[in-house]
Write a protein that binds this DNA or RNA. Structure first.
Length: 596
DNA sequence: GCCGTTTTCGGCCCGACTGTTTTCAGTCG
């Protein structure tokens, strides 16, 4: 089973391995709860905030939920030797092509096995082409329990799979939002639609979105009509399924839209169910079951009494009936939110209206920067900040480039910039302006600004903008060295990830957290759509360490200053309260943090 | 195979849609 070098095994690899075990057991008709156990273990590994291989090295595999003694010892052998007798035994007799075929939607373990066995498919490299040609020859339709329609479905799914492989599979949250808005506007054109919401991972504000989930309120008798309307969405490229209560369309090879219709009186249960996450829902249902209730998208059934299902028009009532306080969608990830909600200890998460300033904004002032300029002047940025209701603002142009100009020239540029800002923004009522700079962290850990220029700025955001490929240890050393500079107040987009384009670099986070806490340096939560960096799981860890964060937009144009809400949503997913975020403080307190 | 402030045994989330069947298996979310 796809054994690779054990030192580079990622959580995804392990999750895939465990899922393959589950599939193998399903094919062999083993106890279905054992199958579920392996699927749960795979889910758990996928949701870990740390590398499972690191946990294994530290002897902490048993701290992973859903991994018990059996799976732990099999994984132990797997990490040590690159293979495990236990897993090998499970996979015995199952062609490896099965686990390839399962990547195609509509092909699950059973059908994959039937295909691989019956047609003796052994070459994982050609298996998709092999199945395609079997479809085209009409061979698949002849198989028992398959048929003409199944053959067609498989052919279509193969098309999608191959087209999807070329493209990235998920899109950054803000792009998905635009798509969802367009669809909702289209749905509302049908007057029978009383309400429409984007749910699922969109409502939970996950950084990258795969499918888009939409729910609408419609009177039962019009459900069919609204679903038909949905199926005629102009951007649709194919219909995946269409029933009386739900339907799915594909709008590009990698984007599927699921629609559910429900009446107003039980819409609360629908919202709850369709928002997810899957893990949250499963845990909630297990919790309810212990109290004698069964949950579904239609409401709550009392298992002890033979009463009709209880309906809820709002989510708040749904949770309250179960003895739980409301849980914001952003933290419904199946960690510990249900336990805390039961004890009424869900924190009050930060909101957009709490934000009082933006500290990562690029202007068009030409200081011969190392990276791109913005398009608005300092004054225009201030006007925008006032419009957004901010009480302070920080200008953080990129540092002047270090090649091609002397240190003295750079010092001069910086002094001139400071004079320019002070002159042009002498008095703006109710808006404190800070002169900042976003400075590159050079590969050796130095910062890309001469010492003599430090006097002309109030604060520095330091960021890695080059040489991303360093190993964890060296990168940590590099960042720690740069954090020592006294003018550093913010570590910018701390992982350097670009969603769907570039993985972030690895850091020894405990060390970073420690220094940031000691020196009162804020970790940035960057709202830029392709960044959303710091990621939510790391925010949660940072806050546990007592580190503060700051939410910025990294705007290069005024309109981008409006993207703050995405950064705030990431903060919320990291369980951040107002108190955890520096730029919610009132101007006086903020000044104290800046210069204190 | 995992898990436990009712349990170390006896439970384990719930339903829709499709195709191939003629009551259900497979897949999906």
């Amino acid at each position: 089973m796809s054994y690779s070098k054990t030192s580079s095994i990622t959580n995804r690899d392990v999750a895939h391995l465990l899922r393959s075990v589950a599939a193998a057991y399903l094919i062999k008709n083993k106890n279905r709860f054992r199958i579920i156990a392996y699927e749960n273990a795979a889910d758990a590994v996928e949701h870990l905030t740390r590398e499972v291989r690191d946990l294994w090295e530290e002897g902490k595999l048993d701290t992973v939920p859903a991994i018990g003694s059996t799976i732990a010892s099999a994984l132990d052998e797997y990490f040590r030797k690159g293979r495990s007798n236990h897993f090998d035994a499970v996979f015995k007799g199952i062609p490896l092509t099965v686990f390839e075929l399962m990547k195609v939607s509509s092909i699950g373990p059973k059908r994959a096995y039937k295909l691989a066995k019956h047609f003796n498919l052994k070459n994982s490299k050609t298996v998709f082409a092999d199945v395609r040609s079997l479809c085209e020859k009409g061979e698949i339709a002849k198989l028992p329990t398959f048929g003409e329609k199944s053959q067609e479905v498989i052919l279509r799914a193969l098309d999608l799979y191959e087209r999807r492989k070329e493209a990235t599979t998920r899109m950054p949250l803000p792009y998905a939002y635009l798509l969802a808005e367009d669809l909702i506007a289209y749905l509302r054109k049908n007057k029978k639609v009383r309400r429409a919401d984007a749910l699922g991972s969109l409502r939970r504000m996950v950084a990258t979105i795969g499918d888009i989930d939409i729910a609408v309120v419609v009177e039962n008798k019009y459900a069919r009509e609204v679903i038909d309307h949905f199926l005629k969405y102009p951007k649709k490229i194919s219909v995946d399924s269409a029933g009386k209560k739900k339907a799915s369309i594909i709008i590009s090879p990698q984007i599927r839209i699921d629609l559910r219709v429900q009446s107003a009186k039980d819409y609360g249960a629908m919202l709850q169910y369709f928002t997810g996450s899957k893990t949250h829902n499963i845990k909630l249902r297990e919790y309810a079951l212990k109290k004698g209730y069964s949950l579904s998208e239609y409401g709550i059934k009392d298992l002890k009494k033979n009463t009709p299902i209880r309906m809820f028009d709002t989510e708040e009532k749904f949770y309250r009936f179960l003895g739980l306080s409301y849980i914001p969608p952003e933290i419904r990830e199946g960690t510990d939110e249900i336990e805390l909600s039961e004890k009424n200890r869900i924190p009050k998460l930060i909101e957009v209206k709490d934000i009082k300033g933006d500290f990562h904004v690029h202007s068009n002032y030409d200081l011969k920067p190392s990276h791109d300029l913005g398009i608005n002047s300092y004054r225009e940025i201030c006007t925008k900040a006032k419009e957004l209701g901010y009480q302070y603002i920080g200008f953080s142009d990129h540092n002047p480039k270090t090649s091609g100009q002397s240190e003295d020239a750079i010092v001069k540029i910086m002094a001139e910039r400071r004079r320019h800002i002070e002159k042009s923004l002498l008095k703006i009522d109710g808006l404190d302006c800070y002169v900042g700079l976003e400075v590159d962290i050079l590969p050796g850990g130095d910062i890309a600004l001469p010492k003599k220029a430090l006097n002309d700025i109030d604060y520095m955001i330091i960021s890695v903008h080059s040489v991303f490929g360093m190993d964890r240890k060296s990168m940590t050393k590099r960042v720690l060295a740069a954090l020592e500079n006294p003018k550093v107040k913010i570590l910018g987009h701390p992982t350097g990830r670009l969603l769907q384009k570039r993985e972030g670099y690895e850091l020894e986070w405990e060390k970073i957290f420690e220094v940031c806490k000691k020196k009162q340096i804020a970790l940035e939560i960057n709202s830029w759509p392709d960044r959303l960096d710091l990621p939510d799981t790391l925010i949660k860890e940072a806050l546990r360490y007592g580190v503060k964060c700051i939410v910025n937009t990294d705007a290069h144009a005024n309109v981008q200053m409006e993207l703050m809400s995405y950064g705030v949503s990431v903060a919320r997913r990291g369980w951040a309260t107002k108190n955890d975020i520096i730029n919610t403080r009132d101007p006086k307190e903020f000044r104290r943090w800046m210069f204190g």
